[in-house]
């Protein structure tokens, strides 16, 4: 039984195109006209599979990969719904990491039905070595709990580690911060679920879900269908920063 999205006091969200703050979900940004199709057109490549460690340039040494993988595994063990991907790329100048993360999360094809479901609780961490930026994106399943403010705060808390120890150290620190924060976030979410949804909306859930399902179907058709075959190119080009 799905809870309505307003149960958890969802915060405002931002447009990946212009970073404008939006109050309501819409198919196109009212400020810049950004939507998924425009984004797909900006990165007309075949995306790499979404795995835990995405380092096509082998920029991270084996020990660093092991440590990162261990830290991610710890988070995934505590929160079995969540899958984490850590991606290091060399993005061309002018390419925004947040937009690229958004593209990766939505464009990488899930290999199974289960993976498609799990994608909603995916947490992507993207390090752009060219611009020296770190950005994070989460799936719809988590954005009620891990909103932009929480993600940004954690990044700022880990900033010292990024500067002193490099992006591997910083990312480990960030993942650990998020893991700790998720515990209290989970407590609040579970309490809110019991208080607001489980008791008050029990009888109205089916009705609400039916309305939500209807509105979802009215959105634009799947993105993959919109892409033309000519647009598909190897992802290596992106990783190396060459166009």
């Amino acid at each position: 039984m799905l809870a309505p999205d307003d149960v958890f006091n969802p915060s405002k969200f931002h447009c990946p195109g212009c970073n404008a703050t939006l109050n309501t979900a819409s198919n196109t940004c009212p400020h810049c006209g950004f939507n998924a199709h425009i984004c797909m057109a900006r990165f007309p490549f075949k995306p790499p599979p979404l795995t835990r460690m995405m380092d096509s340039d082998n920029a991270i040494d084996t020990r660093g990969k092991k440590r990162l993988s261990k830290t991610i595994a710890r988070l995934e063990k505590r929160f079995p719904q969540i899958t984490v991907s850590f991606c290091v790329a060399l993005l061309p100048n002018g390419v925004d990491g947040r937009q690229f993360g958004y593209w990766l999360l939505n464009r990488c094809p899930p290999t199974s039905e289960l993976q498609a479901k799990r994608r909603l609780h995916h947490l992507l961490m993207l390090v752009d070595r060219n611009n020296e930026t770190v950005s994070t994106s989460v799936g719809y399943g988590l954005d009620c709990f891990l909103d932009d403010v929480t993600l940004s705060k954690a990044l700022h808390e880990a900033k010292d580690s990024y500067i002193r120890g490099g992006y591997v150290e910083g990312s480990i620190k960030w993942i650990n911060i998020i893991r700790k924060k998720l515990v209290s976030i989970h407590e609040e979410a579970a309490a809110a679920y019991d208080r607001r949804f489980h008791l008050r909306h029990r009888n109205t859930t089916k009705e609400t879900c039916a309305i939500s399902e209807k509105s979802r179907k009215e959105t634009l058709p799947p993105i993959k269908a919109q892409l033309s075959p000519q647009q598909e190119r190897p992802s290596k080009l992106i990783a190396t920063g060459r166009s």
């Binding site: 969200f13 447009c15 819409s26 196109t28 958004y102 999360l105 799936g139 954005d143």
Partner: peptide, 16 residues
């Protein structure tokens, strides 16, 4: 919970 689909994206709405 019900996902808040936006910008016609299937899995994630992006963040800043």
């Amino acid at each position: 919970h019900q996902p808040r689909h936006r910008f016609s994206a299937p899995y994630a709405g992006g963040s800043n």
